[in-house]
Design a protein around this nucleic acid. Structure first.
Length: 932
RNA sequence: GCCCGGAUGGUGGAAUUGGUAGACACGUCAGACUUAAAAUCUGAUGACCUCACGGUCGUGCGGGUUCAAGUCCCGCUCCGGGUACCA
């Protein structure tokens, strides 16, 4: 039988579609399994072979779980809001929705050709109004909620208002910024004065007008407005991400970028900091991802310490080592710290200003990477809270404004960086550790006992920390504090192609527009306005589908808004009454297996967890972690091919002889190369300049290309799309090959050299089946098949996708090596094993073997242990660990008998050569080791 | 700088709990079939020494534990990813 994969794949895809084989519904009583893939952004370039890697793995699992009797939810959709479509719209004027649709069509088509078992009836698209209506709705819930620190969960805002009505803010503990009242516009509260410290009574609250109440409530909402510093590029009229800024200029166009405070929507993810850490415990994720998330949240325990100044304002520092407070000899502020100006003396001012300006020009990254010790003294000083000593104040890049309080107390004796700083500037290093000469080296020993530290003398770090905090609390100069690195997330974007906010303003007070879809208004251009307003500001009142209040919010939501909850929408994609009916989310529950890249560790995965926890707190769903088990697939790198041109000529020299000439290495399109041999005619036709190329061939008359593993990119001509491979070898081959390449989690080069081996395996399988006969299965066939069932099943359970393919290859080789043709009965089980990997061929072969219905619905075979045990064991006999010969013995022979036979074997006598056997180790069924 | 991965033949990789290192596949070489080619099939293929039998070395490097180490421990090197000098 010829393996006509094109016909087979087309036919069976049509057959499955006709019967809607992959459409699922909730079935009470049937166990569910939810397999989710990374949400793709449909770019104009289409899928390349790296994309399907994870999709194939998840599809294999989905199919396997169906065979095992699970009701499998395996959906696909598109994260279709995004910058490239907007960029294209700016250039061409074409509405991004048009581009997006064309791109999603291409993606869908490509995926369908690979034969994924997605339930396409559940497809969602974040840019579809019927989807983003619910993204807006979730935003609305966040806007109308606060986080109760005492209860550790989010609650509706009206509960907070009730509490304010009853007791002011004395009996509630809502999550908010430190010194939240500093975020208020004090002009709104003329009667508060400068001593207002954030407490108000029920009477106060009752006396507030709407604007005042709103301003206060804004400090506690989970979605709130605040001034946030951004990279503003006036020329582009837009805000840039950190990595879009290089040396203070925009990467695109090289325009100046300035720091600017802008009123932005924010998400209070910090309220969930603790739960984002503790929730990791129950997840089946790799330790490295959990670690990265923990580090990102960055919990550290320590204390706030206040240092007095001469002008009445304290400088607060956060420290994890309050025990070393008597070792403080100077203080360092971030260059951006608000008190820098007040602490700077006149004679130091110009040096300070210069340092600040230099720091400002550097990106955050550059500042972090700086190894040199830099800083400058302000001239001013603060008072030590316990000793009253004058502490000089510096600014330095290594102190970041965004972490802690943006100020540190420096203890050079006990901190590496502070020590280097002190040495560099010749500052005091007070000795505070017993027996350590901290003038010579910094002390990092946690067991070191404190000296010269008053009441803390003789204590170790562990004992002294609580003691120090107590001292500070007693004198009112500080208190215990848990600090997080995590910052609230900016949720506004000055873009067109994103979700509009369901917000309008009345007298500058934001109002939530409930129960109405705010779809994107049409605009005349997708650029910011001349005044730097976002593109939506171009829409006139009539352009808006809904226009309320004085003006509409003109920012849009960021890319992660829609992708933070898509896994929920898949459960109930067409619901017009709710984002997802509770009965559906109760049935499908958490995602049982998520296959995605590690690049989303600190973005998408954190935001999804945040939204899931929030929706759970309000009772909209019944679980508070989205992804129970996660596998992170590795990157697929490209394998570039090169030709060598003799310099200054149009002569090209084959790889082996390239050193005989002075050559230039040029990328050549990998489509013109097979097994490193160049298609010379194709090469000549590739580009006009090569039409007259001459070739210095190898001794075998062929032209060999060089190669290198690089990132896949258009400019390197090494992009491999799945389409060509599907056409050339078939989807089943592509699927098997991507799995066969190696462990899913590892990055690896894409190299089509090995694909023929996998294709061959499928062809051999087809041949084996077509040669099979209707007869009873023989024991030797059953041994092979059942061994394979056992191996494939256990490998799939531990997600070892690559070794499954090897195991099936071995089975086919062994069955093919038998003297007689195989029985159809034995092959049927094998074809079921094959079906998750090569569903089309499996379906075809199942049909040939006379299988009932569809193979994709067949019950997964069970390995019969009767065929797994063998009567004999081949023992390798080693001497001092080196294998010398083999002994075939009955499998049930007891250890002492095995040892006896091994001792007496003539090979043993020969190996020992008269020496005495000191010891014999027998591991039953495994190995014999003789020590002598 | 810090954190997390990784390093096994010419290549991708296998070795699941410390127990025969190199499964499976590619590539290469040789052979069969063929007028020839393609396709297919068979065999060889870690390095070195040896006609052979056989032996020595061998999982990035240096040590260690063990009857036995790719696997465990200590110290390095190089590569990849993440990143925030996190006080």
């Amino acid at each position: 039988m010829d393996y006509d994969f094109l016909r087979i794949e087309k036919e069976w895809q049509e057959a499955w579609n006709k019967d809607s084989k992959y459409k699922v519904d909730e079935v009470e009583g049937k166990p569910k399994f939810y397999v989710l893939d990374m949400f793709p952004y449909p770019s104009g370039a289409g899928l390349h072979v790296g994309h399907p890697l994870g999709y194939i793995a998840s599809d294999v699992v989905a199919r396997y779980k169906r065979h095992k009797g699970f009701n499998v939810l395996h959906p696909m959709g598109f994260d279709s809001f995004g910058l490239p479509a907007e960029q294209y719209a700016i250039q061409t004027g074409q509405h991004p929705a048009v581009t997006t649709e064309a791109n999603t069509d291409r993606y869908r088509d490509q995926m369908q050709k690979i034969g994924f078992s997605f339930d396409w009836s559940r497809e969602v698209m974040t840019s579809d109004p019927s989807y983003y209506k619910w993204t807006q709705w979730i935003f609305g819930r966040l806007f109308e909620s606060w986080f109760d620190r005492d209860a550790g969960k989010a609650k509706p805002l009206n509960e907070l208002i009730k509490a304010f009505d009853a007791n002011g803010n004395f009996s509630v503990n809502p999550a908010c910024d430190d010194n939240w009242w500093e975020g208020l516009d004090m002009e709104l509260f003329p009667h508060f004065g400068s001593h207002f410290a954030g407490t108000f009574t029920a009477t106060d609250w009752g006396s507030f007008n709407d604007a005042q109440k709103n301003a206060i409530l804004m400090q506690f909402r989970l979605a709130y407005l605040a001034d946030s510093e951004v990279n503003w590029c006036p020329e582009l009229g837009t805000v840039l991400a950190n990595d879009e800024v290089k040396d203070g200029l925009s990467e695109r166009g090289g325009h100046p970028v300035e720091k600017k405070k802008m009123r932005q929507w924010m998400m209070r993810i910090t309220a969930y900091a603790e739960r984002l850490i503790s929730g990791l415990d129950d997840l089946n994720w790799t330790d490295s991802i959990k670690e990265a998330q923990k580090n990102w949240v960055g919990r550290s325990e320590g204390a706030i310490v206040r240092f007095k100044t001469s002008f009445g304002k304290d400088v607060e520092v956060f420290t994890t080592r309050p025990d070393t407070i008597y070792g403080v000899s100077f203080m360092v502020l971030a260059p951006e710290h608000e008190l820098v100006g007040a602490l700077t003396s006149d004679e130091n001012r110009s040096a300070v200003d210069e340092y600040i300006a230099a720091a400002k020009r550097k990106s955050e990254r550059e500042r972090q990477g700086e190894k040199e010790v830099t800083g400058v003294a302000l001239g001013g000083s603060v008072l030590h809270p316990l000793t009253g000593a004058e502490i000089p104040v510096y600014i330095a890049e290594y102190v970041l404004a965004g972490y802690g309080t943006g100020a540190i107390m420096a203890v050079p004796a006990g901190d590496e960086r502070d020590w280097k700083f002190a040495k560099h500037f010749g500052l005091d290093i007070p000795a505070i550790f017993e027996g350590v000469d901290t003038d010579e080296e910094v002390c990092v020993d946690d067991k070191a006992k404190l000296i010269a530290s008053a009441d803390l003398n003789g204590l170790t770090k562990k004992e002294a920390i609580p003691a120090a905090i107590e001292i500070l609390e007693t004198c009112g100069q500080g208190e215990k504090r848990v600090n997080y690195r995590l910052r609230d997330a900016v949720f506004s974007r000055q873009r067109y192609w994103g979700e509009p906010f369901p917000i309008c303003y009345v007298d500058d007070i934001p109002q939530l527009i409930e129960d109405e879809l705010i779809s994107l208004p049409s605009v005349d251009a997708y650029l910011p306005t001349k005044d730097g307003e976002p593109p939506l500001a171009r829409a006139a009142k009539d352009d808006w589908p809904v226009f309320k209040g004085d003006r509409m919010e003109t920012n849009t939501m960021p890319g992660w808004a829609g992708s933070s909850w898509y896994f929920l929408r898949y459960m109930d994609p067409h619901n017009t009454e709710s984002f997802c009916d509770r009965s559906k989310s109760d049935y499908w529950g958490q995602v049982d297996l998520y296959v995605g890249g590690a690049e989303h560790t600190t973005g998408h995965l954190l935001y999804s967890r945040f939204w899931t926890k929030f929706l759970c707190d309000l009772g909209f769903i019944g679980f508070d972690e989205p992804f129970k088990t996660m596998i992170n697939q590795g990157m697929i790198l490209g394998r570039s091919s090169f030709v060598y041109r003799v310099q200054g000529t149009s002569q090209f020299v084959t790889y082996e002889k390239r050193k005989e000439h002075k050559t230039q290495r040029l990328h050549v399109d990998i489509n013109l190369v097979e097994n490193d041999k160049l298609d010379i005619e194709g090469f000549k036709a590739w580009r006009e300049e090569y039409a007259d190329a001459e070739f210095i061939l190898g001794d075998d008359g062929t032209f060999t290309c060089g190669h290198e593993v690089e990132k896949m990119s258009k400019s390197k001509y090494n992009v491999q799309t799945p389409d060509e491979l599907v056409e050339k070898y078939g989807a089943d081959t592509l699927r098997c090959y991507e799995m066969f390449l190696g462990p899913l989690t590892q990055s690896k080069p894409w190299d089509t050299q090995g694909i023929s081996g996998v294709h061959n395996f499928l062809r051999k399988t087809a041949r084996l089946v077509s040669a099979s006969e209707e007869k009873e299965a023989r024991v030797e066939e059953l041994r092979i098949v059942h061994k394979t069932i056992d191996k494939v099943s256990s490998d799939l359970e531990r997600h070892a996708f690559n070794t499954v393919v090897s195991a099936m290859m071995i089975a086919v080789n062994e069955l093919g090596g038998l003297k007689e043709p195989c029985s159809k009965a034995a092959l049927k089980d094998l074809v079921i094993l094959l079906s998750p990997y090569a569903p089309h061929l499996a379906e075809e072969l199942w049909n040939v073997l006379g299988g009932e219905e569809f193979v994709i619905e067949a019950v997964w075979p069970k390995a019969n242990s009767q065929y797994l045990v063998s009567e004999k064991v081949i023992y390798p006999v080693s001497f001092n660990g080196k294998v010398r010969f083999k002994l075939t013995l009955p499998a049930d022979m007891p250890a002492d008998e095995v040892e006896k036979i091994a001792r007496e074997d003539e090979n043993t006598l020969k190996q020992m050569d008269g020496r005495e056997i000191r010891k014999v180790i027998v591991v039953l069924g495994r190995i014999i080791n003789i020590v002598g």
